[in-house]
Amino acid sequence: MSVYLDFNSSAPIDERVLEYMIGVYRNSYGNADSRTHDFGDSARRIVEDARGRVSSILGAGKDEVFFTSGATESNNIVLQGLKSYALESGKKHIITSAIEHKSVLETAKVMQLDGFEVDFVKPGLNGQVSAEEIISLVRDDTLLVSIMHVNNETGVIQPVKEIGQSLADLNTFFHIDATQSFGKLVDELRDTKYDMLSMSAHKIGGPQGVGALVLRKKQYKRPPVKGIMFGGQQEHGIRPGTIPVPLVAGLGKACQIAEEEYHDNQEKCEKIKCRILDILDESGIDYEINGDQTCSVPGTLNVCFNGVSSEALMLASRQYCGVSNGSACNSSSYSPSFVLTAMGIPIEKIENSIRISWGSSSDPNEVADAFENLVQVAKKLAF
């Protein structure tokens, strides 16, 4: 049976989360915004409990958490939701990186058509952007700096803590896309200064289709983000539409579990990474790691097998494991990874690179066996 090694695309749902959600589906089918009966009250209590779970793991306030369909929507709300304020204030300069998720990159490019100026900062060969370069680009008219915490293709941790500290006293908003770090780098996020944060439940063992946008308050005021859809005042107008109570409940349960277990989870993932690196070293195959492993999360590895086509390798090894060669948002495209391209990696090495990602629920022995088989396949394909 093939072993799943694509957790960065979507992690398997935690059985404890699923069981909790089934109970909500069966017993709490009311609308959380219905005010006239007990069914609505019951649903609302579940939603507010989940809101508290999200705020707890971040050390944020409950009134700073807004539920969305996931990080892609949250990212869109951040960028597009600041348009009115930008027009009023004249601040139409945005700084982001060239390795962000497409929900940031493509939205920023569309905003360029509306007269916004956007700086796309490239990382170094190590996969990390320079905090100093980011800060050096900040101007009086800089509206927003938007940087992901952990890159989804390389696992490299970006210097959001340093950037947040530098921006804390400036009149510029700071947004973190924490899709790959939420529930994992818990202590670092709690200790980082930011105005806005995006996350998705399905990266931490929660259900697909739900996430959150966190809008931190300064002097009792949240960032001037406005909803980009219309049709109701749910979530204070930030995200109208009926709140999917079971999905939100699943997000809350996943946050509860992550807050209780994140230290152990990171240790489990680190042990798996060590085994994978040992297998690579002992195999004798010609390989390189894309991204600096001294500043990388323990559940991701981007490997270049020199002389081995990643497309051929993925197809030839699929009976052993499920891996990818980039972000799921680009899965229909065979163009080279824009992340690795921005890092300055040569095209022939990009075409030989795959991403493997795992989680604390992965069985170390199964992962090791599957990866050993993948390496043997790669040896046969090498030219």
Score class of each variant (00 low, 15 high):
E162R: 11
G206A: 05
S146Y: 06
Q219D: 11
T154K: 12
E133W: 03
L113V: 06
L105H: 06
N171T: 04
A178E: 05
P159R: 04
V210K: 10
I157P: 03
E188P: 03
T172G: 09
M111G: 05
R216I: 11
D169F: 11
V156D: 14
L189S: 07
I204E: 02
E106G: 08
K203C: 01
L105T: 09
D187E: 11
G124E: 07
M111F: 10
L137A: 08
T142E: 01
H175E: 11
L143H: 02
V214Y: 07
V150H: 10
V118G: 06
S166L: 00
R222K: 10
I134C: 01
K102C: 02
V104I: 14
E162S: 09
R139A: 15
L167N: 12
K217Y: 04
V214D: 06
V129G: 03
R190S: 01
Y220S: 07
V160R: 07
Q112T: 15
M148A: 05
E106P: 09
L215S: 05
M111H: 07
D114S: 10
G183A: 00
M148S: 12
T142W: 02
E117H: 07
L143M: 02
F182Y: 15
E162V: 11
K184P: 00
I147C: 09
S103W: 01
E132F: 06
V156Q: 14
K102P: 03
P159H: 02
L144K: 01
T154Y: 11
L215W: 03
E100Q: 08
L144C: 03
Q165N: 02
Q219F: 03
K184S: 09
K193G: 00
K221F: 00
S146H: 10
V160I: 09
Y194Q: 10
V129N: 08
G206K: 13
E132W: 04
D187W: 05
T154G: 13
V214Q: 09
Q208H: 05
S181R: 01
T154M: 14
D195I: 03
V104M: 00
K109L: 07
S198F: 09
I176F: 03
Q158G: 09
N126W: 06
D177T: 03
V210T: 15
I204A: 05
E106M: 15
S136R: 08
V138E: 08
S181N: 09
I135P: 14
D191V: 05
V138L: 06
D140N: 10
